[in-house]
Protein backbone atom coordinates (compact mmCIF):
# COMPACT_ATOMS: atom_id res chain seq x y z
CA UNK A 1 0.00 0.00 0.00
CA UNK A 2 1.24 3.46 -0.86
CA UNK A 3 2.06 5.97 1.82
CA UNK A 4 -1.10 7.92 2.63
CA UNK A 5 -0.69 11.62 1.98
CA UNK A 6 -2.58 14.65 3.24
CA UNK A 7 -3.25 18.24 2.37
CA UNK A 8 -4.07 20.73 5.11
CA UNK A 9 -5.96 23.88 4.16
CA UNK A 10 -6.17 26.25 7.13
CA UNK A 11 -5.80 30.02 7.01
CA UNK A 12 -4.66 30.44 10.60
CA UNK A 13 -0.97 29.52 10.65
CA UNK A 14 -0.77 28.31 14.24
CA UNK A 15 -3.73 26.01 13.74
CA UNK A 16 -2.20 24.58 10.58
CA UNK A 17 1.05 23.86 12.42
CA UNK A 18 -0.87 22.28 15.27
CA UNK A 19 -3.00 20.05 13.08
CA UNK A 20 0.12 18.86 11.35
CA UNK A 21 1.79 18.08 14.68
CA UNK A 22 -1.31 16.35 16.03
CA UNK A 23 -1.60 14.26 12.89
CA UNK A 24 2.01 13.17 13.09
CA UNK A 25 1.26 11.84 16.56
CA UNK A 26 -2.10 10.28 15.74
CA UNK A 27 -1.10 8.89 12.34
CA UNK A 28 2.68 8.70 11.98
CA UNK A 29 2.45 7.07 8.55
CA UNK A 30 0.51 9.97 7.10
CA UNK A 31 2.67 12.30 5.09
CA UNK A 32 1.49 15.91 4.88
CA UNK A 33 2.40 16.94 1.36
CA UNK A 34 0.99 20.45 1.43
CA UNK A 35 -0.27 23.02 3.93
CA UNK A 36 -2.03 25.97 2.34
CA UNK A 37 -3.77 29.04 3.69
CA UNK A 38 -6.55 29.67 1.23
CA UNK A 39 -9.18 27.84 -0.75
CA UNK A 40 -7.82 28.52 -4.21
CA UNK A 41 -4.41 27.11 -3.35
CA UNK A 42 -6.10 24.17 -1.67
CA UNK A 43 -7.85 23.37 -4.93
CA UNK A 44 -4.75 23.82 -7.09
CA UNK A 45 -2.43 21.85 -4.80
CA UNK A 46 -4.91 19.05 -4.24
CA UNK A 47 -5.44 18.63 -7.98
CA UNK A 48 -1.69 18.62 -8.55
CA UNK A 49 -0.63 16.38 -5.66
CA UNK A 50 -3.72 14.13 -5.44
CA UNK A 51 -3.46 13.53 -1.68
CA UNK A 52 -5.27 10.68 0.04
CA UNK A 53 -6.93 12.97 2.56
CA UNK A 54 -7.81 16.68 2.50
CA UNK A 55 -8.39 18.58 5.73
CA UNK A 56 -10.38 21.64 4.69
CA UNK A 57 -11.10 24.59 6.94
CA UNK A 58 -14.61 25.87 6.26
CA UNK A 59 -13.93 29.59 6.51
CA UNK A 60 -10.95 30.44 4.36
CA UNK A 61 -10.19 33.33 2.06
CA UNK A 62 -10.38 32.63 -1.67
CA UNK A 63 -12.77 29.72 -1.55
CA UNK A 64 -14.55 28.26 1.45
CA UNK A 65 -13.77 24.68 2.35
CA UNK A 66 -17.09 23.63 0.85
CA UNK A 67 -16.49 25.53 -2.37
CA UNK A 68 -13.02 24.03 -2.66
CA UNK A 69 -14.51 20.55 -2.20
CA UNK A 70 -17.12 21.30 -4.87
CA UNK A 71 -14.46 22.45 -7.31
CA UNK A 72 -12.33 19.40 -6.49
CA UNK A 73 -15.22 17.07 -7.22
CA UNK A 74 -15.87 18.78 -10.53
CA UNK A 75 -12.29 18.99 -11.73
CA UNK A 76 -10.95 15.74 -10.28
CA UNK A 77 -9.19 13.71 -12.99
CA UNK A 78 -10.89 10.59 -14.21
CA UNK A 79 -9.69 7.34 -12.66
CA UNK A 80 -7.74 8.76 -9.74
CA UNK A 81 -9.18 7.96 -6.30
CA UNK A 82 -11.01 10.98 -4.91
CA UNK A 83 -9.50 12.22 -1.62
CA UNK A 84 -11.23 11.54 1.65
CA UNK A 85 -12.52 14.87 2.90
CA UNK A 86 -12.45 16.11 6.49
CA UNK A 87 -13.91 19.53 7.18
CA UNK A 88 -12.51 21.61 10.02
CA UNK A 89 -14.44 24.40 11.67
CA UNK A 90 -14.54 26.42 14.87
CA UNK A 91 -18.26 26.92 14.99
CA UNK A 92 -20.72 26.41 12.20
CA UNK A 93 -23.88 25.14 13.72
CA UNK A 94 -25.73 24.58 10.47
CA UNK A 95 -22.79 23.09 8.65
CA UNK A 96 -22.25 20.63 11.50
CA UNK A 97 -25.84 19.48 11.29
CA UNK A 98 -25.40 18.92 7.59
CA UNK A 99 -22.16 17.01 8.15
CA UNK A 100 -23.83 14.79 10.71
CA UNK A 101 -26.65 14.07 8.30
CA UNK A 102 -24.24 13.33 5.47
CA UNK A 103 -21.79 11.27 7.53
CA UNK A 104 -18.94 13.43 6.27
CA UNK A 105 -16.17 13.66 8.78
CA UNK A 106 -15.42 16.93 10.44
CA UNK A 107 -13.28 18.30 13.25
CA UNK A 108 -14.25 21.09 15.58
CA UNK A 109 -11.60 23.59 16.64
CA UNK A 110 -9.94 23.43 19.13
CA UNK A 111 -9.35 19.86 17.98
CA UNK A 112 -9.42 17.43 20.90
CA UNK A 113 -6.87 14.58 20.68
CA UNK A 114 -9.48 11.87 21.26
CA UNK A 115 -11.64 13.27 18.49
CA UNK A 116 -8.70 13.39 16.11
CA UNK A 117 -7.84 9.77 16.93
CA UNK A 118 -11.40 8.73 16.11
CA UNK A 119 -11.24 10.63 12.84
CA UNK A 120 -7.93 9.02 11.94
CA UNK A 121 -9.28 5.56 12.76
CA UNK A 122 -12.23 6.17 10.50
CA UNK A 123 -10.03 7.40 7.64
CA UNK A 124 -7.76 4.38 8.01
CA UNK A 125 -10.75 2.06 7.92
CA UNK A 126 -12.05 3.74 4.75
CA UNK A 127 -8.63 3.46 3.13
CA UNK A 128 -8.38 -0.21 4.07
CA UNK A 129 -11.77 -0.83 2.48
CA UNK A 130 -10.65 1.05 -0.57
CA UNK A 131 -7.46 -1.00 -1.05
CA UNK A 132 -9.42 -4.22 -0.45
CA UNK A 133 -11.65 -3.18 -3.33
CA UNK A 134 -8.60 -2.40 -5.45
CA UNK A 135 -7.46 -5.97 -5.07
CA UNK A 136 -10.88 -7.15 -6.11
CA UNK A 137 -11.67 -7.37 -9.81
CA UNK A 138 -14.01 -4.38 -9.99
CA UNK A 139 -12.77 -1.18 -8.39
CA UNK A 140 -15.49 0.39 -6.30
CA UNK A 141 -14.07 3.86 -6.63
CA UNK A 142 -16.89 4.91 -8.91
CA UNK A 143 -19.41 4.10 -6.19
CA UNK A 144 -17.38 5.89 -3.57
CA UNK A 145 -17.11 8.91 -5.82
CA UNK A 146 -20.85 8.88 -6.46
CA UNK A 147 -21.45 8.75 -2.73
CA UNK A 148 -19.08 11.64 -2.11
CA UNK A 149 -20.83 13.60 -4.85
CA UNK A 150 -24.21 13.02 -3.27
CA UNK A 151 -22.87 14.11 0.11
CA UNK A 152 -21.33 17.23 -1.38
CA UNK A 153 -24.53 18.12 -3.18
CA UNK A 154 -26.45 17.85 0.06
CA UNK A 155 -23.85 19.91 1.94
CA UNK A 156 -23.84 22.62 -0.69
CA UNK A 157 -27.62 22.67 -0.62
CA UNK A 158 -27.61 23.02 3.17
CA UNK A 159 -25.03 25.79 3.01
CA UNK A 160 -27.03 27.88 0.54
CA UNK A 161 -28.65 30.88 2.18
CA UNK A 162 -32.40 31.27 2.19
CA UNK A 163 -33.81 33.15 -0.77
CA UNK A 164 -34.43 36.83 -0.15
CA UNK A 165 -37.07 36.94 -2.86
CA UNK A 166 -37.54 35.76 -6.40
CA UNK A 167 -35.71 37.61 -9.07
CA UNK A 168 -37.73 38.31 -12.21
CA UNK A 169 -35.88 41.09 -13.98
CA UNK A 170 -32.12 41.57 -14.14
CA UNK A 171 -30.70 45.05 -14.48
CA UNK A 172 -27.40 45.14 -16.28
CA UNK A 173 -25.69 48.48 -16.44
CA UNK A 174 -23.49 49.52 -19.31
CA UNK A 175 -22.23 53.07 -18.91
CA UNK A 176 -25.25 55.25 -18.25
CA UNK A 177 -27.71 52.70 -19.65
CA UNK A 178 -29.40 49.98 -17.69
CA UNK A 179 -30.64 47.01 -19.66
CA UNK A 180 -33.62 45.21 -18.22
CA UNK A 181 -33.45 41.50 -18.86
CA UNK A 182 -36.38 39.27 -17.86
CA UNK A 183 -34.97 36.10 -16.32
CA UNK A 184 -37.08 33.99 -18.68
CA UNK A 185 -35.04 35.30 -21.60
CA UNK A 186 -31.79 34.16 -20.03
CA UNK A 187 -30.35 30.99 -21.55
CA UNK A 188 -27.58 30.63 -18.98
CA UNK A 189 -25.48 32.47 -16.42
CA UNK A 190 -21.76 31.93 -16.38
CA UNK A 191 -19.24 33.12 -13.79
CA UNK A 192 -16.41 35.04 -15.42
CA UNK A 193 -13.75 36.45 -13.11
CA UNK A 194 -15.42 39.29 -11.19
CA UNK A 195 -18.58 39.31 -13.27
CA UNK A 196 -21.34 36.99 -14.28
CA UNK A 197 -22.19 36.71 -17.95
CA UNK A 198 -25.91 36.75 -18.59
CA UNK A 199 -26.40 35.03 -21.93
CA UNK A 200 -29.67 35.38 -23.85
CA UNK A 201 -30.60 34.19 -27.35
CA UNK A 202 -29.88 37.66 -28.71
CA UNK A 203 -26.75 38.64 -26.84
CA UNK A 204 -25.10 38.87 -23.47
CA UNK A 205 -24.76 41.23 -20.51
CA UNK A 206 -22.40 41.44 -17.57
CA UNK A 207 -23.60 41.78 -14.01
CA UNK A 208 -21.67 42.00 -10.78
CA UNK A 209 -23.82 39.82 -8.57
CA UNK A 210 -21.91 36.62 -7.83
CA UNK A 211 -23.43 33.38 -9.01
CA UNK A 212 -23.81 32.09 -5.47
CA UNK A 213 -25.91 35.14 -4.56
CA UNK A 214 -27.92 34.83 -7.75
CA UNK A 215 -28.74 31.16 -7.32
CA UNK A 216 -31.01 31.39 -4.26
CA UNK A 217 -33.03 34.12 -6.00
CA UNK A 218 -33.83 32.01 -9.02
CA UNK A 219 -36.70 29.55 -9.22
CA UNK A 220 -35.03 26.14 -8.76
CA UNK A 221 -37.64 24.53 -11.00
CA UNK A 222 -36.68 26.80 -13.90
CA UNK A 223 -32.97 27.35 -13.30
CA UNK A 224 -30.53 24.52 -12.67
CA UNK A 225 -26.97 24.79 -11.53
CA UNK A 226 -25.00 22.43 -13.75
CA UNK A 227 -21.49 23.47 -12.77
CA UNK A 228 -20.05 25.61 -9.98
CA UNK A 229 -19.78 28.38 -12.56
CA UNK A 230 -22.89 27.81 -14.65
CA UNK A 231 -26.61 28.11 -14.09
CA UNK A 232 -28.82 27.17 -17.04
CA UNK A 233 -32.52 27.75 -17.68
CA UNK A 234 -33.85 24.20 -17.89
CA UNK A 235 -36.23 24.93 -20.76
CA UNK A 236 -33.38 26.25 -22.88
CA UNK A 237 -31.64 22.85 -22.81
CA UNK A 238 -32.69 20.75 -25.80
CA UNK A 239 -30.50 17.69 -25.29
CA UNK A 240 -27.90 16.29 -22.94
CA UNK A 241 -25.16 13.88 -23.90
CA UNK A 242 -23.33 11.85 -21.28
CA UNK A 243 -19.58 11.71 -21.86
CA UNK A 244 -17.06 9.04 -20.88
CA UNK A 245 -15.68 11.27 -18.12
CA UNK A 246 -19.02 11.38 -16.32
CA UNK A 247 -19.64 14.93 -17.52
CA UNK A 248 -22.68 15.84 -19.56
CA UNK A 249 -22.66 18.04 -22.67
CA UNK A 250 -25.73 20.25 -23.06
CA UNK A 251 -27.12 21.54 -26.35
CA UNK A 252 -29.06 24.79 -26.07
CA UNK A 253 -32.01 26.32 -27.86
CA UNK A 254 -31.09 29.66 -29.38
CA UNK A 255 -27.36 29.41 -28.71
CA UNK A 256 -24.77 27.64 -30.83
CA UNK A 257 -22.30 26.89 -28.02
CA UNK A 258 -22.52 23.81 -25.83
CA UNK A 259 -22.36 23.77 -22.03
CA UNK A 260 -20.79 21.15 -19.81
CA UNK A 261 -22.57 19.87 -16.72
CA UNK A 262 -20.02 18.65 -14.19
CA UNK A 263 -20.26 15.18 -12.70
CA UNK A 264 -21.56 16.80 -9.52
CA UNK A 265 -24.70 17.77 -11.42
CA UNK A 266 -24.84 15.03 -14.05
CA UNK A 267 -27.63 13.35 -12.08
CA UNK A 268 -29.98 16.11 -13.30
CA UNK A 269 -29.92 14.65 -16.79
CA UNK A 270 -31.33 11.16 -16.79
CA UNK A 271 -33.88 9.56 -19.07
CA UNK A 272 -37.36 9.27 -17.58
Amino acid sequence: MNTPTALIAEDEPLLAVALRADLSRAWPALQVVAAVGDGKQALARALALQPTVCFLDIRMPGLTGLEAAQALAEDWPEGAPFPLLVFVTAYDQYALQAFDAQAVDYLVKPVQPARLDACVARLQRLLAERSAHDRAVEPADADALQQTMAQLRALLGAAAPAAAGRLEVLQAQVGANVHLVPVDEVVYFEAADKYVRVVTASGEHLIRTPLKDLLPQLDPARFWQVHRGVIVRARAVTSARREESGKVTLTLAGRPEKLTASRLYAHLFKGM
Binding site: A164, G165, R166, L167, E168, V169, L170, Q171, A172, Q173, V174, G175, V178, Y195, H205, L206, I207, R208, T209, Q217
Partner: peptide
Protein backbone atom coordinates in the same frame (compact mmCIF):
# COMPACT_ATOMS: atom_id res chain seq x y z
CA UNK B 1 -20.87 53.26 -5.45
CA UNK B 2 -21.66 53.32 -9.11
CA UNK B 3 -20.49 56.90 -9.13
CA UNK B 4 -17.32 55.97 -7.32
CA UNK B 5 -16.41 53.35 -9.81
CA UNK B 6 -17.49 55.31 -12.83
CA UNK B 7 -13.89 55.39 -14.01
CA UNK B 8 -14.10 51.67 -14.62
CA UNK B 9 -16.56 50.44 -17.20
CA UNK B 10 -18.03 48.35 -14.46
CA UNK B 11 -21.40 46.91 -15.21
CA UNK B 12 -23.51 46.87 -12.13
CA UNK B 13 -26.73 45.18 -11.40
CA UNK B 14 -29.73 46.00 -9.36
CA UNK B 15 -31.91 43.12 -8.56
CA UNK B 16 -35.62 43.55 -8.50
CA UNK B 17 -36.86 41.45 -5.66
CA UNK B 18 -40.03 41.36 -3.74
CA UNK B 19 -39.65 43.10 -0.42
CA UNK B 20 -39.55 40.87 2.57
Amino acid sequence: RTGQRACRPAPTIRLVTSAR
